[in-house]
């Protein structure tokens, strides 16, 4: 009797090891393949600009499709169990089979590996895109941003300043080096799928790649005070020529201001970040 029990235990043990081995090999293989596949295209395309906004759109789309599939799977199974398990007699109890120890472990280990491989796959994709977001192309326009309650103040490399309007040439990556003179703010440009907080005492950065002339909303995404929801501005993308012309004009104005020794004022002060419209 005792030996029989031991034999049963040994059988179970073997079964367990087999399950573990198979699932782990499969899961790691899958995860590895997935991550190397995800990392692949990034290296081959290192020479041209990887627009993070495009990358965002495709990764977002992919993740949404994935979670939709998982969600539907779970929901359908749940709905099916609900439907097929309605209580028919008052004294009825559930009749689900009791799990053997081996299958209990299997039901734990197998999902762990499936979830882990999905996680690693997602992480690998996310990391590749992250590098696109954080590696700013060398050929870029760099603008300093100081945020404050409640305006966005930009300073160009040549000293030209604007408020609530970031004017940039089409086709050139734009990098913002950001700080804040009072509370936290977050420079969010929905069209370019990017934001990053600005704060006193630290410099943070973000970049984006405007390609066509046009206007894009900038809005504050970090609670900064009473007028937080009115703290908006615009990114105005001009064609290269128009941008050059605009910049030239600003430069002459700046030079004129400097020679008359007037205090430097923002060359272009847009309306202060809006006020409630109705009263």
């Amino acid at each position: 009797m005792e030996s029989k029990e031991r034999k049963g235990k040994q059988g179970m043990h073997k079964q367990l090891v087999a399950i573990l081995r198979r699932t782990s090999v499969a899961a790691f293989g899958f995860a590895l393949a997935a991550s190397s596949w995800a990392a692949g295209p990034a290296q081959s395309a290192a020479s041209k600009i990887n627009d993070p906004a495009r990358g965002w759109d495709s990764l977002w789309h992919e993740v949404i499709v994935d979670i939709t599939i998982i969600g539907i799977l779970f929901a359908v199974v749940t709905a099916w169990f609900m439907f097929s398990s309605r209580r028919t007699a008052d004294n009825q109890v559930g009749a689900s089979p009791k799990l053997s120890p081996a299958s209990a472990v299997g039901w734990t280990v197998l999902p762990i590996f499936i979830f882990l491989s999905i996680d690693l796959y997602t992480a690998a994709n996310g990391w590749v895109l992250w590098n696109h977001y954080r590696d700013v192309p060398a050929d870029r326009l760099e603008v300093k941003l100081e945020s404050g309650m409640y305006s966005w103040d930009y300073t160009y490399p040549n000293g030209v300043r604007t408020q609530n309007e970031l004017i940039v040439p089409a086709g050139k990556p734009v990098m913002l080096r950001m700080t804040s003179r009072d509370t936290l703010h977050s420079h969010y440009i929905p069209d370019f799928r990017v934001k990053e907080d600005s704060m006193p005492g630290r410099v943070t950065y973000l970049w984006f790649h405007p390609t066509k002339p046009g206007e894009h909303l900038v809005t504050c995404a970090e609670y900064c005070g009473v007028m937080h929801s009115y703290m908006a501005g615009r990114v105005i993308v001009k064609s290269t020529d128009e941008y050059a012309a605009w910049m030239k004009q600003e430069e002459t104005m700046l030079a004129a201001a400097a020679t008359t020794e007037a205090p430097a004022v923002p060359a272009k002060a847009g309306a202060p970040a809006a006020k409630p419209k109705k009263t």
């Binding site: 779970f74 199974v77 749940t78 169990f81 609900m82 097929s84 398990s85 309605r86 209580r87 028919t88 009825q92 109890v93 559930g94 009749a95 689900s96 089979p97 039901w107 734990t108 999902p111 762990i112 979830f115 882990l116 999905i118 996680d119 690693l120 997602t122 992480a123 996310g126 990391w127 992250w130």
Partner: peptide, 29 residues
């Protein structure tokens, strides 16, 4: 990011258990 994604593991196990509990059960709504 990696640790956060890994939260899906314990949470997923619990979801499997919740759904599994319904299998061949006797549900009163």
């Amino acid at each position: 990011m990696v640790t956060t994604l890994m939260i899906s593991i314990p949470v997923g196990l619990m979801m499997i258990s919740l759904v599994g509990t319904l299998y061949k059960s006797s549900i009163a709504f």
